[in-house]
């Protein structure tokens, strides 16, 4: 039982940077950046390959840089080349499949059974059993802290304004191409960080390990918002981490009790996300329908 809780916490923290990244791209910038799946695998591929070559720490840093480059590319496709944002993400994602294979030496999976990871390094340093969890928690906390401070800086506020009121930004001295580029680069770096951490944690990377990461990340974001509300930036960031952990607990619960077959979990996740995003619209339609029925009643 404790093992289940521990695993849920570890995976929750490990995937949390994806939810934070989506908070930045989807909520703050109002851009549905679908390069997440490929970016996550790229982070994992770079991380595991370099760790296997003996540089586990450098691997994390480099993975984040690669993720930032992906975010930057996705932004350029949207701003400079005028490709609609959803399409730009899909194009990047598709291209990344090949890039990821290349990084993994044209194999569909790479493992780290013999090599050192940051986790084994930490254990050797004497951190003991809690090391994995604290390391992954730090992996979630650092991006969160960074974002908390960053979004109050000049460039951070400019990024928030870009997503909040594009008309205002265009009439101001802020260059929206630049704020989108910086925002998506950071978001890409966070996504890749998550991939890098999870890759070394699981000691393996598979070319298909990113499938559905974007939807799960959105689900985490929405769960967090439901629990903590989305009034302030700080609450939303904490909510993203909390949502990520809660999602893994739900996952563990389903796995343990088998109330839904495990194969059905992705379907369930997409249903949750679709329902959560559709909820405000449905509520409005229902209110209108109720009013119409009431007015009709009056006439008769």
């Amino acid at each position: 039982m404790i093992r289940i809780i521990q695993t849920a916490l570890e995976l929750g923290f490990g995937y949390a940077p994806v939810a934070i990244a989506l908070f930045l791209s989807y909520r703050i910038l109002d851009i549905a950046d679908l390069s997440t799946d490929g970016c996550f695998v790229l982070g994992a591929a770079v991380s595991v390959s370099l760790a296997a070559a003996g540089h586990p720490l450098l691997a994390i840093v480099l993975a984040m840089l690669c993720g930032a480059a992906v975010g930057c590319l996705s932004a350029e496709l949207q701003t400079y080349f005028g490709i609609p944002s959803i399409l730009a993400g899909i194009i990047v994602n598709t291209g990344l499949y090949t890039v990821n294979l290349l990084v993994m030496g044209w194999r569909s999976n790479v493992n780290l059974i013999k090599g050192e990871s940051i986790f084994t390094m930490f254990q050797k340093a004497g951190a003991g059993a809690v090391s994995d969890i604290s390391l992954l928690a730090a992996g979630a906390a650092l991006p969160a802290l960074f974002l908390h401070f960053f979004l109050a800086t000049r460039i951070g506020l400019s990024i928030r304004a870009t997503g909040d009121n594009p008309i205002m930004v265009r009439a101001s001295s802020i260059d929206p191409s630049r704020t989108i580029r910086i925002g998506l680069s950071i978001s890409g770096a966070f996504t890749a960080l998550s991939g890098a951490l999870i890759g070394q944690y699981q000691k393996a990377v598979d070319i298909n390990s990113g499938t559905g990461v974007v939807v799960i990340g959105l689900a985490c974001l929405i769960i967090g918002e439901t629990v903590l509300g989305k009034r302030s930036v700080t609450k939303s960031i904490i909510g993203a981490i909390l949502g990520s952990v809660l999602y893994r607990f739900i996952y563990a619960f389903v796995l343990y009790t088998q109330i839904v077959p495990v194969q059905g979990l992705k379907l369930l996740t997409s249903l949750i996300v679709a329902a959560a995003i559709a909820a405000p619209v449905l509520k409005e339609k229902e209110a209108l329908r109720r009013r119409m029925r009431k007015e009709e009643g009056k006439d008769a």
């Binding site: 401070f149 000049r154 506020l157 400019s158 928030r160 009121n165």
Partner: peptide
Amino acid sequence: SGTAPGLTIEENLALVYLHIKKGSSAFSR
């Protein structure tokens, strides 16, 4: 059209202020 609704009054002011303030960098608060 001229203000960001999701940002607080203070953040709207800060956004503009930080852009016009001399010697401020992208990371100024």
